[in-house]
């Protein structure tokens, strides 16, 4: 069973979102998503300072047999990306919620976070998909 931490918010496209104490947003992909994709071999991250609207594709994670777009969960400006993934994309497999984060952004409207799924709703979503 995939790990779905309670304190995070989720998207239907399997990104997780964490609101940091300074109001910034950290984004990654869920444990369930990394299981589906398999061994990561490459990550293409957005450029810092780029701005995205929620739902835009802004990054790509690549395993041997699949490449998956990452959609920006919240509108905002990218402030930093996880440079360590360039040399160790497998971190997404081993530690998706912590050192395997993808990028951070400053949200345009932090209220958008509330519209995302909570852990319970996300668990339901993946249960349905498995069906």
């Amino acid at each position: 069973m995939s790990n779905v931490p309670n304190e995070l918010k989720y998207t239907k496209t399997h990104e997780w979102v964490r609101t940091e104490s300074d109001g910034s947003i950290t984004v990654g992909i869920t444990d369930h998503a990394q299981e589906l994709l398999g061994d990561m071999v490459f990550v293409e991250l957005p450029e810092t300072d780029a701005t995205y609207t929620s739902g835009d594709d802004c990054a790509v994670v690549e395993s041997v047999k699949a490449a998956s777009d990452i959609y920006c969960p919240i509108s905002g400006e990218i402030t930093s990306v996880n440079e360590d993934l360039a040399d160790a994309p497998e971190t997404i497999n081993t530690d998706p919620y912590d050192t395997g984060w993808l990028f951070k952004l400053t949200p345009e409207d932090s209220g958008e976070v509330d519209e995302l799924l909570d852990a319970e709703a996300y668990l339901e979503l993946i249960a349905e998909e498995d069906h």
Binding site: D39, V41, F42, E62, V64, K65, P89, E90
Partner: peptide, 12 residues
């Protein structure tokens, strides 16, 4: 001639 190949190594 070879056993199953490591595609992950090839890509990483």
């Amino acid at each position: 001639p070879v056993r199953r190949l490591d595609d992950v190594k090839a890509a990483r």
